[in-house]
Amino acid sequence: MEHHTIGLTLKVWRQKNNKAKGQFETFNVKNISTEMSFLEMFDVLNEQLVAENKEPVAFDHDCREGICGACSMYINGRAHGPWHNTTTCQLHMREYKDGDTIVVEPWRANSFPVLKDLIVDRSSFDRIIQAGGYISVNTGNAVDANSLPIEKHRADESFAAAACIGCGACVAACPNASAMLFVSAKVSHLALLPQGDPERKIRSVNMIEQMDKEGFGSCTNIGACEAECPKGISLENIARLNREYLGAVFSGDSQNA
């Protein structure tokens, strides 16, 4: 691919802290290599701001190789930008043309309060996991990994659900700010394996209750989450979560929940 440099206009959300009222600020960046990732482009912008003695834009990032889920940016109306199955760090500047204007916003959901600029607090996800995304394991020596036979197909499906990196793009993209795709992935990867069986009846109920408590919207099966998920988590997981929930509330032995 031919390498060249471009100049861009960025409209970025700036917000001092959780309490402050934010607003958009416009920046111009020049000499952006088309080989750069979107985050590297932001690094260039921040270096420019530091040199000008201005406050750099705060944004979340960690691994920069598409597996940690930190880089939450809502780019021109799309979670993680326009590419499918891609996190912001894997979005590259060859997507853009010289002179383009890009609007960058933080994830917008009441359950993801903005901490600063583009950084949001996603600890609501952690609390949902704590409510039920665990399994009981006996203490003592680790058992042999092959002692429990698991059908290949189930293992694959479970693995596909476990690919969820908890980035929150599903919530950001959902018109209802619902966390159902996230919760369904977390319930699914355990529900498909024998290790997940002991807490099965209380897991879906407890996690859904925590999800509601955190103030996420409810799912209306729109499917924007699936379209924007960087890990390709399928809506079939939401169907499975619904089945798990039905199984739990209709079976009559979920008093603990």
């Binding site: 109306g77 326009p82 700010a177």
Partner: peptide, 29 residues
């Protein structure tokens, strides 16, 4: 449900995905 779901995002996006990520009728029930 419609009213509750709408209230879950107090600050709305400046730019939205529109039909790029979901068909209009699913968002217009």
């Amino acid at each position: 449900l419609w009213a509750k779901n709408r209230s879950r995002r107090s600050v709305r996006y400046q730019v939205t995905a529109g039909n790029k990520t979901s068909p209009w009728y699913r968002r217009s029930m």
